[in-house]
C-alpha cells in the first residue's frame, strides 16, 4: 500500500518535473520570466509552510528573511569582480540565516497571534533599517547590480539567458522541495507536527519545544532567504519594498490558497494567485476593447479594479476548499 503510493508519488514527481523542464519552449520571453517568478514566490511560500503547515505557527517575518537574502546577494554582487553566483548565494543565505536566528530566538517564546505579531514587528524593524540606511542599502531606491554568470571558476562560465535562469531556478526549487520534504518526514519534522497537534503534550513527553521552534524558524528563514537570492538574480535589484510585511502576507495567502502542510500546495497557490492576478489585470481592458469594437462605450471598464474579483475568488477558495487547491484536488482523486 505505502510502497505503491511511494511509486505513484515519484512517477507524478518525474512527470511534473519533466513538464516544467520543457514548458518554457512553447512560451514567449515574458511568460518564461513569469514562470521563473512563480517558482521563486512558490519557494518563499513553501519555506513558510514549514511553520504554518507543519509547526502551526503563522509568520509575518518572511519578508525580512526574503529581503535579507536579496540584500545579501546584492552585497556579494556589488563587492566582488566578476560577480559570483555562488558568493551571492552564500552571502544571501548567511544574511537570512543570521536574521532568522535573531528573530527566532525572541519570537518563539511567544505563541499564536503573539508570535505572528512579533515576527511582523521584526520584519518592519528591518524594513525601517534598510529604508533609512541609504549609504549601505540605497534606501528607497534600493540597489541595482548586474547578473552573475552561471560559472564554476576554471571550468566554464555561461551568461544566464531567460531560459537557463528558469532551469537554474527550477533546479534550486526542486532541490529545496526534496530537502524540505525529507526534513518534514525526519524525526525532527515529526516533532514539529506533534507541536502543531498538541504543544503541551509534546513538552510533557520530553521535547524542548522552544528549541525545536527556533530551529524550525531558522530552516524556514534559510529557504525564504534562498528565494530572495533567486529574486535578486532574476531582477538585478534589491529594494526595501520586498522587506515590507505585505510580502509575508502574500506568502501566507499562497499557502492558504494552495493548501498548508503539503509543501507543493504553496507553489500551486503562488501559481494560481499570480496567474489569476495577471489574467484579471488584462481581462477588463480586453473586455473594454471588445465592447468598443461593437460600438459599446463602457466608461471605467478598462480601469476596473481587478483586485476585487481576485479577492472574491480567494474568499471562495477559503470557504469552499478549506484545504486549499491541492487538498481539494487530492480529495477528488482519492474518491
Amino acid at each position: 500500500m505505502t510502497a505503491r503510493r511511494t511509486r505513484i508519488f515519484w512517477m507524478a514527481f518525474a512527470v511534473i518535473l519533466a513538464l516544467l523542464i520543457v514548458m518554457p519552449f512553447g512560451l514567449p520571453e515574458f511568460w518564461r520570466r513569469f514562470l521563473t517568478e512563480i517558482l521563486i514566490w512558490g519557494l518563499l511560500a513553501m519555506s513558510s509552510d514549514i511553520l504554518i503547515g507543519y509547526t502551526g505557527m503563522v509568520s509575518f517575518g518572511h519578508s525580512a528573511f526574503f529581503g535579507l537574502g536579496m540584500y545579501g546577494a546584492a552585497a556579494a554582487l556589488l563587492t566582488t569582480r566578476p560577480p559570483s553566483l555562488w558568493l551571492a548565494l552564500l552571502y544571501g543565505l548567511i544574511a537570512a540565516a543570521t536574521v532568522a536566528a535573531f528573530v527566532a530566538y525572541f519570537s518563539t517564546r511567544l505563541r499564536d497571534i503573539y508570535f505572528a505579531i512579533t515576527t511582523l514587528i521584526f520584519s518592519q524593524i528591518f524594513y525601517v533599517i534598510i529604508f533609512t540606511w541609504t549609504d549601505a542599502t540605497g534606501g528607497e531606491n534600493g540597489l541595482a547590480f548586474s547578473r552573475p554568470a552561471l560559472a564554476i571558476p576554471g571550468l566554464f562560465s555561461l551568461p544566464f539567458t531567460t531560459l537557463t535562469l528558469y532551469w537554474f531556478v527550477l533546479a534550486v526549487v526542486t532541490g529545496s522541495y526534496l530537502v524540505l520534504r525529507r526534513i518534514t518526514r525526519s524525526p525532527f519534522g515529526m516533532v514539529l507536527q506533534s507541536i502543531r497537534e498538541n504543544e503541551a503534550r509534546t513538552r510533557a513527553i520530553g521535547y524542548p519545544v522552544e528549541r525545536y521552534k527556533i530551529v524550525a524558524v531558522m530552516f524556514s528563514g534559510l529557504f525564504a532567504g534562498l528565494a530572495g537570492v533567486l529574486y535578486a538574480i532574476q531582477n538585478r535589484f534589491a529594494a526595501p519594498d520586498f522587506v515590507f510585511f505585505v510580502v509575508s502576507g502574500e506568502a501566507v495567502i499562497y499557502n492558504i490558497m494552495g493548501g498548508v502542510g503539503t509543501l507543493v500546495g504553496p507553489i500551486v497557490g503562488a501559481a494560481a494567485f499570480l496567474l489569476l492576478r495577471e489574467g484579471l489585470s488584462r481581462l477588463f481592458p480586453y473586455l473594454a476593447s471588445v465592447a468598443s469594437q461593437h460600438g459599446l462605450a463602457l466608461p471605467g471598464l478598462a480601469e476596473f479594479p481587478y483586485l476585487i474579483p481576485l479577492g472574491i475568488i480567494f474568499i471562495a477558495i477559503v470557504i469552499f476548499m478549506p484545504q486549499g487547491l491541492l487538498g481539494f484536488a487530492r480529495r477528488r482523486l482519492n474518491e
Binding site: 518526514r185 516533532v191 513527553i205 521535547y207
Partner: peptide
C-alpha cells in the same frame, strides 16, 4: 505515531535528514 513520537523523545529527536521510519 502517538507512542512513536513519545519513544523518539529519548533518541534521534534531532535527526533532520533521515526518514523517521528508518529508525
Amino acid at each position: 505515531e502517538n507512542v512513536r513520537i513519545a519513544a523518539q523523545s529519548r533518541r534521534h529527536g534531532w535527526s533532520l535528514f533521515t526518514h523517521h521510519r528508518a529508525f
